[in-house]
């Protein structure tokens, strides 16, 4: 079947299998490999993208469900010459080690800060990132980065 969705501001029409996942469309059909597949069981959050303004796990969304949706991936928030404030904050605070979880962390954190009304504290950030796992155990600096980005976003 054919689906049409907006990805990082551009309309894209893709032919997909009925049982295709959104993350497969992004990575394999559109070549946007910044979105990672970690656990493939909805737990780790490496695949988080924004869909119609909400952070979602793209490994747990069927491609058909994304027909007509507005999707933003890690590639759509900044570029090497003009990083998103959340990316800057992650760099400034050394908020990544291996980097595998980082795209999902950043997409979740942006949604969290955008909806947090500037009032997030450390507890709220840790609760808000509950669905993102970092196996380098780098949470401390990630939380620092998100709080810093709250001021700069």
């Amino acid at each position: 079947m054919e689906i049409t969705l907006t990805v990082n501001g551009a309309a894209r029409t893709v032919d997909v299998a009925d049982n295709a996942l959104l993350v497969d469309v992004l990575r394999e059909s559109l070549g946007l490999t910044g979105t990672h597949v970690g656990c493939d069981t909805s737990q780790c959050g490496a695949c988080v993208v924004h869909m119609n303004g909400d952070a979602v796990k793209s490994c747990t969304v069927l491609a058909g469900q994304a027909d007509g949706a507005d999707v933003t991936t890690i590639e759509g928030i900044g570029d090497p010459d003009a990083l998103h404030p959340m990316q800057e904050a992650f760099r400034d605070n050394h908020a990544l080690q291996c980097g595998f979880c980082t795209p999902g962390m950043i997409m979740s954190a942006i949604d969290l800060v955008q909806k947090g009304g500037g009032s997030l504290d450390e507890t709220a950030v840790r609760d808000g990132l509950e669905g993102n796992l970092c196996r380098c155990t780098g949470y401390h600096n990630i939380v620092k980065a998100v709080l810093a980005a709250q001021s700069s976003m």
Partner: peptide, 9 residues
């Protein structure tokens, strides 16, 4: 319920 991403879907 679950985490933020689960609550969004």
């Amino acid at each position: 319920i679950g985490d933020a991403h689960v609550r969004n879907r």
